[in-house]
């Protein structure tokens, strides 16, 4: 790689940071409890909009995993979701009514908060419908993972997004507030993920799963990216490039081994396809604030009358992380 290309990466990173700096004015603190954050706390960063139904289980899940403090941005919710979390003692909440799409799908806001509060902390950046699974997550808290990554001098941890879906039409499996979404949507595609290496950023570009199979088979290039690097020992110089798919400096994107070995990796179980989704797809398609102006959401709402059945004979039912490890979707790597 020549000097010019390296410099362009540096420039890109600095522009992203400058953007985040500018967008900080759009945020208003609702509950700022960041003074409580201790030097080695593990933080969670998240943007949400009208997610009141999902939030209780989300908070509960990550609290049990061992997150010490939640740093959240409420993007103009009108369903009382913000009220659910403001009162909680381990939450710091900001609010903005600015447009999600203009803030790089919320990433500008989160990057500002990451730089401000996440510096030298292990920071987990997820959406409200993403649930992190890592090796031994049933017996070891996320602190164990962070300590081990520190001891191994690893700064970033990859977790591919794994789309979970129910058996039968999505509308047939209603989801209630506080419920485990994977009690409803507990099926996944075990082995149809395709990937290529992005030479510029050095990340893997992973596509596939039920969304590529059902919605994007005729235009696979448009299928959503599933590669994510959500857990990073943050430094204020870092910048997420596109959601949490890529990060700069690009060395952080090397969460995979290019030789024959396996690095340790996890999965983000994606609880997108549960009933509350139908209305969401229609709303979001109309709003056009998502990536590629809601193209994905338009496809979801067109497919099978807006009520797709993603299940097929070869779907696997979710049991635990060990099952996912055996299938080769994630790896214990060197951690034993």
């Amino acid at each position: 790689m020549n000097v010019f290309a390296l410099y362009s990466l540096r420039l890109q990173r600095q522009l992203l940071r400058a953007r985040a700096l500018r967008k900080r004015h759009e945020l208003t603190a609702v509950a700022d409890r960041t003074a409580q954050i201790r030097p080695d706390d593990i933080l969670l960063f998240c943007t949400f909009r009208n997610e009141a139904i999902r939030l209780p289980y989300f908070m509960d899940y990550y609290r049990k995993l061992g997150i010490n403090h939640f740093v959240m941005v409420d993007n103009g919710s009108t369903d009382g979701g913000a009220d659910l979390v403001t009162g909680q003692s381990d939450v710091s909440l900001w609010r903005t009514d600015a447009r999600y799409g203009d803030a790089r799908y919320g990433m500008d806001w989160l990057m500002w908060l990451l730089g401000r509060y996440g510096h030298r902390h292990w920071a987990l950046t997820v959406d409200v419908d993403e649930f992190l699974i890592y090796p031994f997550c049933d017996t070891r808290p996320i602190r164990a993972l962070a300590d081990w990554l520190d001891a191994s001098e690893v700064r970033s941890f990859g977790a591919m997004q794994l789309d979970m879906y129910p058996k039968g039409a999505i509308s047939q499996s209603p989801y209630f507030m506080g419920q485990d979404p994977f009690a409803v949507a507990n099926w996944f595609d075990p082995g149809n993920y395709i990937m290529t290496r992005n030479d510029r950023m050095r990340n893997l570009w992973i596509q596939g799963g039920p969304r590529a199979r059902v919605f994007f088979a005729d235009q696979p290039r448009l299928a959503p990216a599933l590669n994510k690097i959500p857990f990073v020992k943050w430094h204020r110089k870092y910048a997420y490039v596109s959601s949490t798919h890529m990060i700069l400096p690009r060395g952080l994107n090397l969460v995979y081994d290019q030789g024959q070995g396996e690095k340790t990796s996890g999965l983000l179980l994606h609880a997108k396809f549960i009933n509350l989704f139908q209305d969401r797809a229609r709303q979001e398609a109309a709003r056009g604030q998502h990536y590629r102006a809601g193209e994905q959401y338009r496809r979801y709402s067109d497919e099978q009358g807006g009520d797709p059945d993603l299940w097929c004979k070869w779907s696997e039912q979710y049991i635990n992380w060990r099952q996912l490890e055996v299938l080769g979707l994630m790896s214990k790597g060197n951690w034993a």
């Binding site: 990859g158 977790a159 591919m160 993920y193 990937m195 290496r197 893997l204 992973i206 590669n227 969460v255 995979y256 081994d257 290019q258 030789g259 024959q260 070995g261 396996e262 690095k263 340790t264 990796s265 080769g328 979707l329 994630m330 790896s331 214990k332 790597g333 060197n334 951690w335 034993a336």
Partner: peptide
């Protein structure tokens, strides 16, 4: 664990093994 980290599962391409 050592074998997994250095040689991995043959024929598997995944998010953390991309020979």
């Amino acid at each position: 664990a050592l074998v997994r980290r250095t040689r991995g599962r043959h024929g598997l391409f995944m998010q953390s093994r991309f020979p």
